[in-house]
Design a protein around this nucleic acid. Structure first.
Lengths: 250, 250
DNA sequence: AGCAGTGGTTGCAACACTTGCAACAGATGG
DNA sequence: CCATCTGTTGCAAGTGTTGCAACCACTGCT
């Protein structure tokens, strides 16, 4: 492990929260300001940092690389048009989360027409046991992968409806697998609910899930459920674009 | 400047193009594979790299930070809903580019409904002399800033219609400033054209521009011009949301 | 005007950290 | 079963990093 690189990444994490001055950064790292400055200059020359009146923040080279990376995730370009159509139709927020190496990551997001924005962010990991997309994916995963995943969960409680025991969660997953879709009844934030459905790749394996999310005050769960036909059709369309013929369901 | 950090950034640039193996990366840097591995492990632990079957690529921590950074650019959250509405209306690609420290950067993009995607990418710098947004911003910039900008331009020719001399470009900017909007008549790629209009901040200064872009075969320039009222209205709406009252126009 | 508090810069000496090496485990594939 | 690859480790050598001190330039305050 490289100390210097670790420090550089730590700087990026630090000024990503909000722009930071040289002094703040040096103090945060616990190094002399000249040391911090030399690291910052290297980041700046690479486009990973930029300075604006004495404060440093994320550089645009880094933004461009990250966007490119998402577009390279084979799922994103295929799914995005479908998600936009779904978002248009109801004006609610639409998410797509993908299973990628033992993590479930938001890879696309279409903001709803409401004034409030969901706090989710492309690139961030999903909370598996308190999200519609997380449960939709886990419920349809093959046995060994699911077990591996579940073993790492902590079942932290976020709201009154959060599922907090392995047994209850397995039961919930079984129910989801049976009916083919999942919901989040305010399990992460009590004023937010959603419905979610799985997306399959060419071999029929569940690799992602899409969801329609809304404030409970704006669209309670029973109203979101009415959109399930369109949601599952959207997921089916994405799956078809990925090459799934509906033949296999392992 | 830190050699180690420079190497780390170079690695990121390298595997951003496409996933790379340890051997490739070591060779690219001209270092021993154990050295490359140690840097990679540091990046991986920070979430800036991830490995998938022996090849490395961009990690999700980096994606999340970059998305956060764009959302923190005060312009993006304000403008995005307006751009989406504009994109919906005609089905063409909509861009927003922002002037930020001597560069013009794409900060939002709404893909059109066509099968082809524009090659632009959020986070990337705009080509100022061959793009609608670039010209729209430059034309409405204050004298000193514009001169500083123009001094750095190279006027590279991309297509037959590219403007390649400072004199012709200044003339074009004057015309744009007068009528209040710009166009790109296949000046970067001959099969793509667009119309663009400026966005002003609370103090009346032009800080960004929005454009409607389409394949010439799908929507030639004279057809795009018909959308100008909606485009300028969109830009005015964004400007209003930024606090512009229309009083000042420096 | 003077002062205190910033950010930014530089040369240098000391040494901590990085580097290359070599050797090996383990996986993969012709 | 050999060839080739990634991944890992301990170690010696020395290069690159670090802290320091002193400095300039700028800002805002008194």
């Amino acid at each position: 492990m490289s100390q210097t690189v670790r420090r550089a990444l730590s700087i990026i994490e630090f000024f990503a929260e909000r722009p930071r001055s040289l002094g703040e950064i040096a103090e945060h790292l616990g190094v002399h300001k000249s040391t911090a400055l030399r690291l910052l200059q290297t980041l700046e020359r690479g486009g990973f940092a930029r300075s604006v009146d004495g404060r440093y923040t994320v550089g645009f080279r880094m933004v461009a690389i990250a966007h490119q990376a998402v577009e390279h995730l084979e799922l994103h370009p295929v799914a995005h048009p479908h998600l936009v159509r779904l978002g248009d139709r109801y004006g609610h927020t639409v998410h797509l989360a993908q299973l990628v190496d033992d993590e479930i990551i938001y890879v696309a997001k279409v903001d709803g027409r409401g004034a409030l924005k969901m706090r989710s962010r492309v690139g961030r990991a999903v909370n598996p046991h308190t999200s519609g997309v997380g449960k939709a994916i886990l419920a349809h995963l093959d046995e060994p992968s699911r077990d591996r995943f579940l073993a790492r969960l902590t079942y932290q409680r976020h709201t009154a409806t959060s599922i907090t025991t392995p047994a209850a969660f397995r039961q919930e997953l079984a129910r989801i697998a049976e009916r083919g879709w999942a919901e989040d009844d305010g399990e992460f934030e009590d004023f937010v609910n959603c419905v979610a459905a799985p997306v399959r790749d060419a071999r029929g394996r569940v690799v992602a899930a899409a969801s329609i999310t809304a404030l409970r005050a704006l669209a309670p769960l029973d109203q979101l459920r009415e959109h399930l036909p369109q949601l599952t059709e959207t997921c089916a369309a994405i799956s078809r674009d990925l090459g799934w013929t509906g033949d296999q369901r392992p």
